[in-house]
Simulated scan of single mutants.
Amino acid sequence: MTTNDKYASVRYLVDDVPAAVAFYTGHLGFTTGAAAGPAFAEVFRGPLRLLLSGPASSGARATPESARTAGGNRVHLVFDDLGAEVERLRAEGLAFTGDVVSGPGGSQILLTDPAGNLIELFQPAAR
């Protein structure tokens, strides 16, 4: 077994790899990695390595159909000014699944990528 603790990797199954890459790099500050193609790409944001697996990728083919429905799982991205981030993304034409919800730990809002995967934008509560 090999270990790489430089990045935490999450795999998202997507319908259109180039559209997913454009979404994450164009709107959420991710950068592209060395692996990029029509079936698979990797994008990075800090220590997060997001694996975008299209229908032809081995990751998608290995996933049973019953596991492909999106549940409440999501990538969690932290921002210093959630309000400004929401305004910026709305100005870019992105729609959110609801409004900002605030609680004792902070505030969050959800949006989806082009394949319907959830992304949580979060601002911690002031301490």
Rank of each mutant, 00 (worst) to 15 (best):
F79I: 07
P18S: 08
V101M: 12
R61S: 12
L82D: 14
E92R: 08
L82S: 13
V10L: 12
R90A: 14
L118R: 10
A22R: 10
V86Y: 06
V43R: 00
L77N: 04
S102G: 09
H76M: 06
G103C: 03
F23S: 06
T25M: 08
L48Y: 01
T97K: 07
L94W: 04
S66M: 02
N117W: 02
A22P: 01
G29E: 13
L118N: 09
Q123C: 01
V14D: 07
G105I: 10
A19I: 10
T112V: 13
Q123G: 02
L111W: 05
G59T: 05
A126R: 13
G103I: 11
L77C: 02
L48Q: 02
T31I: 09
E65M: 00
P47N: 14
A67Y: 09
T3W: 10
L52H: 07
P124I: 12
L89W: 07
T2A: 14
L111K: 02
S53W: 02
T2D: 15
R74N: 13
D80L: 00
L94S: 04
R61A: 14
V43W: 01
L28S: 07
L50F: 00
A22F: 02
S66Q: 11
L77K: 03
V10R: 00
N4D: 15
D16V: 01
R127K: 08
A20Y: 04
G46C: 11
R90V: 04
V78I: 15
T69V: 14
L110W: 11
G33F: 03
A34V: 14
A115F: 03
G37E: 08
T32P: 00
E85D: 08
T2F: 06
G71Q: 12
G59R: 02
S107R: 14
